[in-house]
Simulated scan of single mutants.
Amino acid sequence: MTTEHRIRRIGLAAARAFVQARTGIVLDVMVPEHFEQRHIPGALQACVHEVVFCDAVAALAPDRAVPVLVYGAGAGSQDGRMAAEKLLRLGHADVRWFAGGLEAWCAAGLPLEGSAPHARPDAHPPVVMPDGTYMLDTAASAIRWTGRNDNGAHHGTVNCAAGSLAFSRGHGTGDLRIDMRSIRDLDIADAALRPVLEAHLASDDFFFTALFPQAALEDMALAPLPSATATTPNYRLTAQFALRGMRRRLALNVALRGVGDAGGLALAGHCDLNRTRWGVLYGSARFFRHLGHHRVDDAISLDFRLVYAPARGR
């Protein structure tokens, strides 16, 4: 029998009776800053999202025979159920999950404790981009690439050269310049072989950096995705991607988040590019026959995190 089937799920009336009886432990498993604002009277706190959750519970409830009522945010949030499963695996004999959680408790008008018991904070405040201009922080930004062939894969980095974003009413425009001469491999340990691959990538076989030293995202446009959550991409990025003298349309979903205390932004995402669309044909079986061990997958994967700071004087 799984722990999920052994969880004793209770409703509001039973939870209220448990709290009033004071014969067991009431455990709030949400983040500490939320607990500090409002919680069920007499509740203790151990955040189920922390890696030390089990140690915290062991300190709060050393006697595993004592009944424990756990609650989280409420319907649709898995925090209380996940905590109950963990307690059962730790050997607690009587674990009760108040599935309605704090939402049901508040909706019933029952008493609360905390610094702001009547506050109703948004669980995940929507990301709203303030109007203004943002400049790329090249040192804090990173682009990682992965290329694959029959023998495995190589991965490395390429540096950003410059970039900017401008937002108006939640929509953004901008550009990004990439220094293709900075392309580096990170997986080859042999110091003599690594420069061979890097020179190969810089040559006319691949990115021809002597003639095309930069790649670019031009005419960037960012539009909000209406169905996004706080942990999924929330903007649609479209642009013309210029590489090796060719421009092709690029469209992908990205995550745009606020970072730091100074109003900065971070734009992160992943895409798989068919390099042959930009004339990078080396090793492609679409364009050559009898390649032997020189076959190289057409797709190049890019993972990026671009960090922006507000432009001075905006």
Results as ranks from 00 to 15, higher is better:
132 G>E: 09
133 T>M: 00
134 Y>Q: 03
136 L>R: 02
136 L>C: 04
136 L>F: 02
138 T>H: 01
138 T>R: 09
139 A>Q: 14
139 A>S: 14
140 A>D: 14
140 A>Q: 14
141 S>N: 12
143 I>M: 07
143 I>W: 01
143 I>F: 00
143 I>S: 00
144 R>N: 02
145 W>A: 00
146 T>S: 10
147 G>K: 01
148 R>M: 01
148 R>C: 03
149 N>D: 14
149 N>H: 09
150 D>A: 05
151 N>V: 12
152 G>M: 08
153 A>N: 11
153 A>I: 04
153 A>Q: 14
154 H>V: 05
154 H>L: 03
155 H>W: 07
156 G>S: 06
157 T>K: 11
158 V>W: 02
158 V>H: 03
160 C>L: 15
162 A>F: 06
162 A>S: 14
163 G>S: 14
164 S>F: 15
165 L>E: 00
165 L>Y: 01
165 L>S: 03
165 L>I: 03
165 L>T: 05
166 A>R: 10
167 F>Q: 11
167 F>P: 09
168 S>K: 13
169 R>K: 15
169 R>I: 11
171 H>I: 08
172 G>D: 10
173 T>K: 08
173 T>F: 11
174 G>R: 01
174 G>P: 07
174 G>H: 02
175 D>K: 06
177 R>L: 11
178 I>L: 08
178 I>D: 01
179 D>C: 12
179 D>G: 12
179 D>Q: 12
180 M>Y: 07
180 M>I: 09
180 M>W: 07
181 R>G: 13
183 I>S: 01
184 R>W: 04
185 D>I: 05
186 L>P: 06
187 D>H: 06
187 D>R: 07
187 D>N: 08
187 D>G: 02
188 I>S: 09
189 A>G: 15
189 A>I: 09
189 A>W: 11
190 D>M: 10
191 A>V: 15
192 A>E: 14
192 A>F: 12
193 L>G: 11
193 L>D: 14
194 R>V: 13
194 R>Q: 13
195 P>L: 04
196 V>F: 00
196 V>Y: 00
197 L>K: 05
197 L>Q: 06
199 A>P: 01
202 A>M: 14
202 A>E: 11
204 D>M: 10
205 D>Y: 07
206 F>C: 05
207 F>N: 05
209 T>I: 10
209 T>N: 07
209 T>L: 05
210 A>R: 15
211 L>M: 15
211 L>E: 15
211 L>Q: 15
213 P>V: 12
214 Q>L: 15
215 A>F: 05
215 A>C: 09
216 A>T: 13
216 A>Q: 04
216 A>L: 10
217 L>T: 07
217 L>V: 08
217 L>N: 03
218 E>G: 09
220 M>C: 12
220 M>N: 06
220 M>G: 02
220 M>P: 09
221 A>F: 03
221 A>Y: 06
221 A>P: 01
221 A>C: 06
221 A>V: 08
223 A>E: 13
223 A>L: 05
225 L>R: 00
226 P>E: 04
227 S>T: 12
229 T>S: 13
229 T>H: 07
230 A>E: 07
230 A>M: 04
230 A>L: 03
231 T>P: 04
232 T>I: 09
232 T>L: 04
232 T>M: 03
234 N>K: 09
235 Y>E: 00
235 Y>C: 02
236 R>F: 04
236 R>H: 10
237 L>T: 00
238 T>G: 09
238 T>Q: 06
